[in-house]
Structure formats: C-alpha cells, structure tokens
C-alpha cells in the first residue's frame, strides 16, 4: 500500500495547477452530454427576475443547440459562484449568469454573433444593458419594494424553502440587500408609476429596434434570449399586479417575438397569445 510516489509532495499546491490547466484545456473539449443548468424550483420558489434570467439562459443554450438538463435546487442561488441564478455545470466548470455563459460557450467556438459586425455587436450589448438596467431592476422593485406583491407573493415564495423561523430571517435579509442595491441604482425613491413608465420606455425602445423583423439582428442572438426571458416571465408571472401585462399588450412586436422563441423552446404560448388578442388601447 505504501508507494513512494504518493509520498512525494508537489512544490506548487496541486489544486492551483489543476485550476489553471483545466481552464485552458476546457476550450477544446466538445460540449458534454451531462451539462446541468441549476435554478430554483419553478413552481413554488422562483421569483420574477430570477425566472427571467433562467429562461434567458435556457433560450440561449437552445438557440446554440447545446444540450442541457434543468436541475432545480432550493439553494441554487447560494451554490452559484456569483450568487445569482442560473448557473451551469459543464464538466469541472461552474459558470453563472447569461453573460458568463455566453462567454464560456464562445470560448468553445460556438457563437450566435459571428455574422455581426462590430457596430451591431456593441449595439446588441447596449440593448442587453438596457434590459438588465431597466426590466430587471423594475422586476426587483415590484417583487421586493411593492408591499402588496412582497406580502402576497415574494415573501411566501422566497421563504418557502426555509423552515420557520429562518424563512422570515432570510426574507428580511434578502429584502434588505435588494433595497440596498436599489438605492445604489437610484431606484429606491422611484414611485410605482415611475417604474412602470421606465418599463414602458424600455419596451418602446426594444420594439422600435425590433421593427418588423423576426429577431433583433436577423437571426438569433443572446439579446433575443434575454428579451424573451423577461417578456415571457412577465406574461406568465403570477403577480397580482398585472400592470406588466397591461404594458406588454401595447407592444405586439415584442409579444410575437416572444411567441416565436417560446415555440422554439417548446413552451406554452397561450399566455402570450392571450395578450396578443387583447385590443390595444
């Protein structure tokens, strides 16, 4: 049992070596079959902003025709290296959030934006920023700042995975950290009307960019995935405030875009179609 080789210690800690090498080697490997996408439980736990981001990543992977399995975990957020869902586990790698995953996939030579020139690419990034800065923040605002939504939906769903009294403590601390972030982004002092106005403006900008095209830049890009994630989860959200739906029904272009991608994803398109049927004001 005693082997002199095993007794020799490497000069550099072995962990550091493997970390460095695997990152470089990872690029050449083919996409494995056992890639898992970790996210919170869809039915009882996930909140609107997280749901949007998870759907966006799923749509992106589907557009790239990369295989993945969804693995729901109550502690997905804590497991994620950046503290945000979703994240994927691909071999030894753990990569989180849409931007990180896009970068990771690009490193393997798979990209949706190779036909785009530099100007279009920066355009696309600007629109992605718009979605993150407006739609995501608005969703966070509604979930955590609006009393009615917080009491009826957010606190129940977010606390559902913790035992009493930990659920209250976790809700309280999460709410405090979200509020702190909203303060930094200058969203804390906004009124509900202002928030919805921001959402409407953002939708208007996206709708204008989309025009009558099928996708924002001709074919699928990560922007399409991100917009789909947010629009679809807003359409299907169980929030009592259906203000989001009221805004969205004025943007049939975004809704049809969303319907197109939901069909690609094999998702239920009824909620989107229902909104499309509603006459615009």
């Amino acid at each position: 049992m005693q082997d002199s080789d095993t007794l020799k210690k490497p000069i550099i800690p072995s962990k550091l070596i493997t970390e460095k090498f695997t990152i470089e080697l990872g690029a050449q490997e083919p996409w494995p079959n056992d890639v898992k996408l970790y996210q919170p439980y869809e039915v009882e736990q996930i909140l609107l902003p997280d749901n949007a981001n998870c759907l966006a990543v799923q749509a992106f992977l589907r557009m790239c025709q990369l295989h993945y399995d969804v693995e729901p975990r109550a502690n997905a957020e804590d497991m994620s290296p950046t503290g945000k869902v979703p994240f994927i586990k691909c071999g030894a790698f753990v990569v989180s959030e849409l931007e990180g995953i896009v970068q990771f996939v690009n490193n393997r030579g798979i990209t949706l934006t190779d036909k785009l020139d530099n100007e279009a690419k920066s355009d696309m990034r600007a629109y992605m920023c718009l979605v993150h800065n407006v739609l995501e923040k608005a969703e966070l605002y509604i979930c955590w700042m609006d009393k009615e939504t917080y009491n009826d939906v957010t606190s129940i769903r977010h606390g559902s995975v913790y035992p009493w009294p930990l659920n209250h403590i976790q809700n309280w601390s999460k709410r405090r950290s979200v509020m702190k972030n909203l303060k930094v982004w200058n969203w804390y002092d906004k009124t509900l009307e202002e928030v919805f106005q921001e959402v409407e403006n953002a939708c208007q900008a996206l709708s204008d960019r989309l025009d009558d095209k099928e996708y924002f830049f001709g074919s699928h890009t990560e922007l399409d995935a991100l917009v789909f994630g947010h629009v679809y989860s807003m359409c299907t959200s169980c929030l009592r405030l259906n203000e989001f739906q009221n805004i969205l029904k004025n943007f049939p272009r975004l809704l049809s875009h969303c319907k197109r991608i939901s069909e690609l994803m094999g998702k239920d398109t009824d909620p989107v179609e229902d909104l499309l049927k509603v006459p615009q004001n």
């Binding site: 975990r73 109550a74 804590d78 009294p165 930990l166 976790q170």
Partner: peptide, 18 residues
C-alpha cells in the same frame, strides 16, 4: 465555498440551514 477550486459536492451543500 472557500474558493473557486472547491469541489462541486461541497458546493452543492452551500446555503443557509437552521
């Protein structure tokens, strides 16, 4: 988790428990 190189088995157990 203590670092990036932490194994996934340990990562799976992160989170808050009572």
């Amino acid at each position: 988790v203590a670092g990036k190189s932490t194994s996934f088995e340990v990562r799976e157990q992160s989170g808050v428990t009572l």
